[in-house]
């Protein structure tokens, strides 16, 4: 493993007594990169995160964080990771400032330095006036901002973000995104899971789509869109069942399409889609650029997971 690699997984497997959550997965995250892990519920995202954080043992394969093995050097790895977990783990017994100071102690940060950094974190996430409030009295957005601020106190070199903006209003989401981009420009490595494709497209340099514990695709957001969805999408609202032999027509023209129930999606580049316009005349049609959500749904399917 070269020193420019922050996280590397080789045939990484997690088996919860018979239930294989992560199935022989290979990936690597370079230093300073924001790497996204996308997948539906139950895909194995959180299992991967937990193994990286050393709170879930690897069943087989290898997982190395900054040249350290997660099964052998847990404390050393955990001291360079900043973790924003999916579950809200603020301490309800302590106020906001105490939450930060107590967390800093676990990293052996001296008291005065911890205070300095705690105030800086509160400023960065616009929480200064909440310093003596109880976490129970914070809004969802404030709690999430505090969790991220807490994860940064020991100046980690890798930030682990498990669905960092789930449940936030657009204002809080954008504040979080701005701060994360700032951190990325400062050179911090990020491992991010999310359900929001716009978030992944905005923050991630590279990402992988996983489902049922296996990697389905991997690359930059642009490359994934180009490869799996093309340039443009024509969304034909058919209100199933499809009459008039629409699907047969699309098939006959050799178009790349997907039957999505109440609508049919046609993928392709601008010129080939323009040539075939007559096929969907008479339908209500939306034409838009292809995006990551198209990639995600094409790769993982439309069936519900829970």
């Amino acid at each position: 493993m070269t020193p420019s690699i922050a996280i590397e997984a080789n045939r990484l497997t997690k088996d919860y007594s018979g239930l294989v959550a992560v199935d022989s997965v290979d990936f690597s995250v370079s230093k300073g990169e924001c790497f996204g892990v996308l997948g539906p519920n139950g895909a194995g995202k959180t299992s991967i995160m937990k193994m990286v954080c050393c709170i879930s043992p690897v069943t087989s394969g290898q997982l190395v964080v900054q040249c350290m093995d997660v099964m052998r050097q847990r404390r050393a790895i955990k001291s360079v990771l900043g973790v924003v977990s999916q579950a809200d783990s603020l301490d309800p017994g302590l106020n906001v400032m105490q939450n930060l100071l107590s967390h800093a102690r676990f990293f052996n940060i001296p008291g005065t330095l911890a205070k300095e950094r705690a105030w800086a974190a509160l400023d960065l996430f616009q929480l200064r006036e909440k310093a003596s409030a109880s976490p129970d009295h914070l809004s969802g957005g404030m709690r999430r901002r505090l969790l991220i601020g807490r994860a940064l106190l020991h100046e980690p070199s890798i930030l682990i973000l498990d669905e960092p903006t789930t449940g936030l209003d657009p204002q809080s989401r954008h504040l979080v995104w701005d701060r994360l981009l700032q951190l990325k420009h400062q050179g911090i490595t990020m491992l991010l899971t999310t359900h929001y494709m716009d978030e992944a497209a905005y923050l991630c340099d590279r990402l992988m789509v996983i489902d049922l514990g296996k990697i389905l695709a991997e690359g930059t957001p642009e490359k994934l869109v180009r490869t799996h969805a093309g340039e443009q999408v024509v969304q034909i609202q058919t209100l199933a069942p499809h009459s008039n032999g629409l699907l047969e027509q699309l098939e006959a023209q050799g178009l790349d399409y997907e039957d999505a129930g109440d609508s049919v999606l046609v993928f392709g580049d601008t010129s080939s889609l323009s040539k075939s316009e007559s096929s969907w005349s008479g339908y209500h049609v939306v034409r838009r650029p292809a995006n990551l959500e198209d990639v995600f749904l094409r790769l993982t399917g439309r069936w519900l997971r829970d």
Partner: peptide
């Protein structure tokens, strides 16, 4: 209560604490 309802241990485990 600290372990199960307040998730205090969970947050500790994300630090060098074992």
């Amino acid at each position: 209560l600290r372990m199960d309802s307040h998730h205090v241990y969970e947050a500790m485990l994300f630090t060098p604490v074992e």
